[in-house]
Design a protein around this nucleic acid. Structure first.
Length: 265
DNA sequence: AAAGCGAGCAACCGCTTCTAC
DNA sequence: CGTAGAAGCGGTTGCTCGCTT
C-alpha cells in the first residue's frame, strides 16, 4: 500500500515547539477542534506536519494533563498494568487520567524499569503478535475493555483512577514537590508550569465570561464531536488565504489570546 | 570555571489499524 | 472486497539541563 509521507519535507519546521507555535495550536484546537490533523496546521498558520501538531496537543497542550512527579499510587498502577498489558502505553495511560502514553513510557524507561529490573515481566499481550486485535486500543475493543476492567490486577482494591484516590486517600508523592488541585480534581505538581498556567487561564476565562465548561468553543475539543463544530464554521471550506480566523484572530473576540500570551510556555 | 557525563523528556519515525469510498 | 488516506501507537533519537570532576 502506498503511504503518503507524514511530512512535506519542504519548509516544515521540526524540533522543539516555540511558545508562539504552542499558542497558535492551542488557540486553533480549542476553537475548532481537531477536525483533521493533516489539514489543521495549514489553517492554524503552523509550518508543522499534522502528526507533529497532534503529538504536541495530545502530550503537552491538551487540557487536564497532569505533569510532574508520579505518586506512589500512579507508579504502582503503571507497574501492575505493565505486568498485565506489556508495552501498551496508551492502554496504561487510559487508566491514569491526566497522564499521556508518551510520559508514562518515558517514566517507565527512565525510572520504573530500573527499579524493577530484577523481575522482568512477561506481558500477556506482548509484542510477539502485533496483529492481535486485543493489543490495540480501538473503537471496537469492547470485549478487550471488558476483560481489562474485570482484570483482577486492574480491578483491584487499589483504584486505578488516581483522580479520586488521590483526594480521598492521599499518598505521599515520590518527591517533595507541592501539589495543587485543579478544577477537575486532579493533582498537579507545582513544577507543572504549563498545566498550572492553563488552569489559571481557564479560571481567568471563567471569571470573565461565565461558565467555561458550558461554552462550546472553549470546552475540551477532544471530547467534542467535530460534527458540533464544523456546521458552525468549517475551516476546510476556506482556502488558507481567505480563512477568516487565522492565528491570533481566532480568540481575540474573547480576550483569550491576550491571556494566552501571558503564559510561560 | 569549564568540560564531561548521564538522566530525563520532547519530539520524530515508521509501522499498524481504522475508516471512508 | 480492495484501496487510499488519516489517525494512533510504540520504539527510538537527540537535545537540554543538572551534577560531578
Amino acid at each position: 500500500m502506498v503511504r503518503t509521507p507524514c511530512c512535506d519535507k519542504s519548509g516544515l519546521r521540526k524540533g522543539t515547539w516555540t511558545p508562539e507555535e504552542d499558542r497558535k495550536l492551542s488557540a486553533y484546537v480549542t476553537r475548532y477542534g481537531c477536525w483533521n490533523w493533516r489539514q489543521l496546521p495549514k489553517y492554524a498558520g503552523l509550518a508543522r506536519c499534522g502528526k507533529s501538531c497532534r503529538l504536541r496537543w495530545m502530550n503537552y497542550l491538551r487540557p487536564n494533563i497532569k505533569r510532574g512527579n508520579y505518586s506512589k499510587e500512579e507508579e504502582e498502577t503503571i507497574i501492575r498494568l505493565h505486568e498485565s498489558l506489556g508495552n501498551r502505553w496508551s492502554a496504561i495511560a487510559a487508566q491514569l487520567p491526566g497522564r499521556t502514553d508518551n510520559e508514562i513510557k518515558n517514566h517507565w524507561h527512565t525510572t520504573l524499569k530500573k527499579r524493577f529490573k530484577h523481575k522482568p515481566s512477561v506481558p500477556k499481550n506482548g509484542k510477539d503478535n502485533p496483529r492481535d486485535p486485543i493489543k490495540r486500543g480501538t473503537s471496537k475493543e469492547t470485549e478487550f475493555e471488558t476483560k481489562l476492567n474485570n482484570h483482577p490486577l486492574i480491578n483491584s482494591t487499589t483504584p486505578p483512577l488516581i483522580l479520586e484516590s488521590s483526594l480521598s486517600s492521599p499518598q505521599p508523592a515520590t518527591s517533595d514537590q507541592n501539589s495543587s488541585i485543579t478544577t477537575d480534581n486532579t493533582i498537579v505538581s507545582s513544577k507543572d508550569s504549563v498545566h498550572t498556567n492553563n488552569k489559571a487561564l481557564l479560571e481567568a476565562y471563567e471569571a470573565n465570561s461565565g461558565n467555561f465548561w458550558t461554552e462550546p468553543f472553549f470546552s475540551d475539543s477532544c471530547y467534542m464531536s467535530s460534527d458540533l463544530l464544523l456546521p458552525m464554521m468549517d475551516p476546510a471550506r476556506y482556502e488558507a488565504h481567505e480563512f477568516p480566523f487565522l492565528d491570533g484572530e481566532i480568540l481575540c473576540p474573547f480576550g483569550f489570546y491576550d491571556q494566552l500570551q501571558g503564559l510561560n510556555f
